[in-house]
Amino acid sequence: MKKLSGSKWSNSLKAWHLPDSVEYREKFKIQNVADPLANKSMEIAGFKSWLRSKRYSENTIETYLNALKSFLTFHKDKSISEIDNSDVIKYNNNYLLKNGLSASYQNQVVNAIKLFFKTQTGLRINPDLVHRPKSASVLPNVLSKEEIKMILNSPKNIKHKAMLCLIYSCGLRRSEILNLKITHVDSKRKLLIIKQAKGKKDRVVPLSERIIYQLQEYYKLYRPRIWLFEGQKPEEQYNERSLASVLKQALCIAKIKKPVTLHWLRHSYATHLLENGTDLRYIQEILGHKSSKTTEIYTHVSTKSLQNIKSPFDDLDIL
Rank of each mutant, 00 (worst) to 15 (best):
A162W: 09
L262A: 10
A250C: 09
W9I: 10
T294A: 13
R241D: 15
H17P: 04
H272V: 06
I89Y: 06
Y298V: 10
S292V: 07
K3L: 00
A112I: 05
H131V: 14
L68N: 02
P133W: 02
H267L: 02
D20Q: 06
S104A: 13
N107W: 02
I44H: 12
K118W: 10
S292K: 03
D317G: 00
L143C: 09
T119G: 03
H17Q: 07
L207G: 14
R173K: 08
D87T: 09
Y91T: 01
L228Q: 05
D87S: 07
N32E: 10
S41N: 13
Y91P: 01
E23M: 14
K255N: 11
F229A: 09
I226Q: 03
G122L: 01
K78E: 05
I253C: 03
A254P: 04
E236C: 14
S208Q: 12
V110E: 05
D35Y: 14
P259L: 04
A250R: 10
Q216E: 00
T119H: 14
P133C: 11
N92L: 12
C165L: 10
A254Y: 07
G100Q: 11
K258M: 04
D20A: 07
Q106N: 11
K145P: 01
D317F: 11
S135C: 12
W50C: 00
L51E: 03
S154Y: 14
P224R: 03
F71R: 03
L228K: 08
F229Q: 07
F116L: 03
L129P: 04
T294M: 14
W50Y: 02
S154K: 06
N39F: 02
A34N: 15
Y213F: 04
N157T: 06
Q232C: 08
T73I: 10
V22I: 12
S144G: 14
